Amino acid sequence: MTSNQSTVENAKEKLDRWLKDGITTSGGKLPSERELGELLGIKRMTLRQALLNLEAESKIFRKDRKGWFVTQPRFNYSPELSASFQRAALEQGREPSWGFTEKSRISDFPEMVAPLTTVTASDELYRVTGWGALEGHKVFYHETFINPVVAPGFIDQLENQSFSTVWEQVYKKETVVKKLVFKPVRMPGDISKFIGGSAGMPAILIEKHRADRDGNIVQIDLEYWRFEAVDLFINL
Rank of each mutant, 00 (worst) to 15 (best):
M1S: 12
S3K: 15
S3W: 10
N4C: 03
Q5N: 08
V8T: 04
A11K: 02
E13H: 07
E13T: 10
R17I: 14
K20Y: 08
D21L: 14
T24C: 15
T24S: 12
S26N: 12
S26R: 13
G28M: 02
G28W: 06
K29W: 08
L30H: 06
P31N: 07
P31V: 08
G37E: 00
E38L: 14
G41I: 03
G41K: 07
T46H: 06
R48A: 13
R48I: 14
E55I: 09
E57G: 04
S58F: 15
K59M: 11
F61K: 07
R62M: 08
K63T: 11
R65G: 01
W68F: 07
V70C: 11
Q72W: 15
P73F: 06
R74M: 15
R74F: 03
Y77H: 13
S78I: 11
S78Y: 12
E80N: 10
L81V: 08
A83V: 14
Q86F: 15
R87C: 06
R87H: 13
A88W: 00
A89I: 08
G93L: 14
R94V: 09
R94G: 11
E95A: 12
E95I: 14
S97V: 01
K103N: 04
S104M: 07
S107R: 02
S107I: 04
D108V: 01
F109W: 07
E111V: 10
M112K: 11
M112C: 08
M112D: 10
A114N: 12
L116K: 00
T118N: 13
T118M: 11
T118L: 13
T120E: 10
D123G: 10
D123S: 07
L125K: 02
Y126L: 00
Y126W: 05
T129S: 05
A133Y: 04
E135Y: 15
G136K: 12
G136E: 10
H137P: 01
F140D: 11
F145G: 01
I146P: 05
P148A: 01
P148F: 03
V149G: 03
I155G: 01
I155H: 02
D156H: 09
D156A: 12
Q157V: 05
S162I: 04
F163S: 02
E168W: 04
E168H: 09
E168C: 02
V170S: 09
V170F: 04
Y171R: 01
Y171W: 00
Y171V: 02
Y171G: 04
Y171T: 02
K173H: 10
K173N: 06
E174S: 12
T175E: 07
T175L: 05
V176M: 05
L180S: 02
P184M: 11
R186C: 08
P188R: 09
K193G: 05
I195N: 08
G196E: 13
A199H: 15
G200H: 05
M201S: 14
H209K: 00
A211N: 03
I217T: 15
I217N: 06
I220W: 03
I220F: 00
Y224W: 15
W225E: 06
W225P: 03
R226V: 09
R226L: 14
E228G: 00
V230K: 01
V230S: 01
D231N: 15
L232E: 07
L232V: 13
N235L: 09
